[in-house]
């Protein structure tokens, strides 16, 4: 009962927040998206103020009462000061690193302070991650990064970032919940596994044609994900459509990593095994290609190639796709 009530509250809160703070690449804090409430420390402050008031009232001492009211007035002015400590700041994502599931993924953020006042004690935190605390001097930009723990492959969605401050006195907390657009892709966790089938393809003389970069072998239909260097621009300009130049590799036997080689394993295990294999091949300096159901990545070599393949593994079978293109 309680948890379902909490759930429905969460949903409604999220709906309300979505209206106020939709997804964005850059959030400017103002009274439209800042919230403020007394912090836990305020309890101590309140207890002291009440005790002062009791003492002042009981001893009928106007000076003690005056100090009590002074404390109250300080609290009221601190509301404005705390709010003003966030208001006007701008936060934006400058980039996201890639990571394997289970590792930490780093998100690079810029916090900009275009105003004339220093902003101290700004804390950034995504749900479970360690908070980052920073000071943003007047008229300057601070670059910072947040490291998020990843659980599984796919697009990382850590939810809303919590930007908060309790400066200057700690008795009030002003915060905002921007939903920043991230392009954070998590690769599968690499876990080497013995291929269960298709051992013979390893040999290299077999049924599949080998593609490499050494000798020109002919033209084939262009497929997404192919390097522009391989596009047959001459043929394209002649109006024959996009074609890919393929090269016969003779000295190097390109390695084909095939989804079907791991038949019998679950989807995630297969992806993890392929992931480990890709890394291994890249480290060996091999040429390698990848076959996934419905997708074929011709053999190549290099960091970009590796990332392209790993990305394909990361989003394999997931239909959600963030807007924008990944840029390695």
């Amino acid at each position: 009962m309680i948890s379902s009530a909490r759930q429905s509250f969460r949903e409604r809160l999220e709906k309300w927040l979505e209206r106020r703070q939709p997804e964005t690449v850059r959030e400017v804090f103002s009274q439209h998206n800042l919230y403020i409430f007394p912090s836990m420390q305020f309890v101590g402050f309140l207890v002291v103020t009440i005790m002062m008031w009791l003492a002042g009232t009981n001893y009928e001492n106007n000076l003690v009462l005056a100090l009590t009211f002074f404390m109250l007035a300080i609290f009221v002015s601190t509301i404005f000061r705390t709010h003003a400590n966030l208001s006007g700041l701008e936060i934006s994502v400058t980039g996201c690193d890639r990571a394997f599931a289970g590792d930490k993924l780093t998100i690079h953020l810029n916090v900009e302070n275009p105003t004339k006042h220093d902003r101290l004690g700004i804390v950034l935190q995504w749900t479970d991650a360690n908070p980052v605390s920073l000071d943003v001097p007047a008229k300057s930009t601070v670059q910072t990064e947040v490291r998020l723990q990843t659980q599984r492959r796919g697009w990382l969605n850590p939810g809303r970032l919590r930007v908060e401050t309790t400066y200057p006195l700690g008795i009030l907390r002003a915060w905002s919940w921007p939903r920043l657009q991230l392009n954070a892709l998590v690769y599968p966790k690499p876990m080497p596994a013995e291929p269960t089938a298709g051992e013979q393809s390893e040999g290299g003389e077999g049924q599949s044609h080998k593609r490499g970069i050494d000798d020109f072998g002919g033209l084939s239909e262009w497929q997404p994900g192919v390097s522009p260097q391989r596009i047959a621009w001459k043929q394209y300009s002649a109006g024959r459509g996009l074609l890919e130049k393929t090269f016969e590799a003779q000295t190097l036997n390109p390695e084909w990593l095939d989804w079907e080689n791991y038949a019998g394993l679950g989807t995630e295990q297969r992806l993890s095994a392929l992931c480990a294999k890709i890394i291994e091949m890249e480290e060996l300096g091999q040429h390698y290609g990848l076959r996934l159901p419905g997708q074929v990545f011709p053999p190549a070599q290099g960091e970009m190639h590796m990332h392209r393949l790993l990305s394909a593994l990361a989003i394999y079978g997931l239909d959600e796709n963030p807007e924008g293109d990944e840029d390695g």
């Binding site: 106007n62 005056a66 009211f69 002074f70 002015s77 006195l169």
Partner: peptide, 21 residues
């Protein structure tokens, strides 16, 4: 902060009701 709080302190001091012990 203290300076800004002074006017409010005075207003509360003048108008807050006093309660007996």
């Amino acid at each position: 902060i203290a300076l800004v709080s002074i006017p409010l302190t005075i207003i509360i001091f003048l108008f807050a009701p006093r309660v007996p012990s």
